[in-house]
Design a protein around this nucleic acid. Structure first.
Length: 280
DNA sequence: TACTAACCTGTACG
DNA sequence: ACGTACAGGTTAG
């Protein structure tokens, strides 16, 4: 006998994947593209303003993924600490904007930037007796002057956000089609967008485009790799070059397997919590 | 090809 | 309080 869903909402929503969630009493409410999602923990339940299919990747064989990843001692410890931490399946456009905005920023600021963007340009809706602002659609952002995006506090990222929205809105970048491609083909297209480099692309691929073999390598992952994996993945420099990133990713995939993105999420959550970093 | 500094600006820390 | 450094990186040179 086992519980219906192995999903710890607090851990999952506070692991750096999503930024537009808020707790209200027994429930958490979040913005995902053109819908509002509500989740409660005991008992676990999800409802939404329009169908949100498998937002928490309920369709993954979670137990067998964890079992496979547990071959590694460090990931096994992280899984033990956060046994119901899930990867989230996000709206691709929101995810694209989110991680462009995230570059060289911090979590609280990212949250504030995105919140302002929604309040200023997103459609206002009612759900569960409360009012919310949806994430603005690509066309809406594409038509917004950079000046107004700057008011959201995005700084130099504002022009990248607008350009990305233009690419999506014009059809030059078809996000949904990237889901059908393999990791490298999809990544090649994402990298074309200004403001999207290796790390940001990997976040978008992992969190919204079905690429569980993506492994975003940020400063925290470098810290983790140095601390626990100095033997397997030696990292000498303070930062890594594009080439080193690619080589490292390849080795991470062959070490952790096709679900290495999950390993990244467990490790990231563990290390941030150890360092008592605030999520919101 | 590899390495550096500059980049907007809100928070965090002293 | 008030200044200074840093932040889930990317890019131009």
């Amino acid at each position: 006998m086992q519980t219906i869903q192995h999903i710890n909402i607090d851990d999952t929503l506070n692991s750096g994947q999503v930024f537009l969630w808020e707790r209200n009493g027994r429930f958490w409410y979040g913005i995902d593209g053109q819908k509002i999602i509500r989740v409660g923990q005991n008992p676990f339940e999800v409802s939404s303003s329009s169908p949100a299919d498998n937002y928490f990747r309920e369709d993954d064989d979670y137990d067998s993924i964890k079992k496979e990843l547990s071959r590694d001692r460090t990931v096994r410890n992280a899984i033990q600490a956060f046994p119901s931490l899930r990867l989230i399946r996000q709206d691709p456009f929101q995810c694209l904007v989110t991680f462009i905005v995230s570059s060289n920023s911090n979590i609280l600021r990212i949250r504030n930037n995105l919140g302002k963007l929604c309040r200023r340009f997103g459609k206002k809706v009612q759900f569960d007796g409360k009012s919310f602002c949806l994430f603005p659609e690509p066309k809406q952002v594409a038509e917004t002057p950079v000046k107004d995006l700057l008011d959201c506090g995005m700084g130099y990222r504002a022009k990248h956000v607008k350009a990305a929205a233009e690419a999506v809105s014009s059809g030059a970048l078809e996000l949904d089609k990237l889901k059908e491609l393999d990791y490298h083909s999809a990544k090649d297209q994402l990298i074309q967008i200004a403001g999207v480099g290796n790390k940001v692309a990997d976040c978008i691929l992992l969190f919204s485009l079905e690429k569980t073999d993506a492994f975003p390598i940020d400063t925290w992952m470098l810290k983790v790799l140095r601390k626990y994996y100095s033997k397997q993945f030696e990292i000498s420099s303070k930062t890594i070059t594009e080439k080193q990133y690619d080589v490292l990713h390849q080795r991470l995939v062959s070490y952790f397997g096709e679900y290495c993105g999950y390993a990244q999420q467990f490790l990231f959550k563990m290390e941030r919590d150890i360092n008592q970093k605030k999520w919101f």
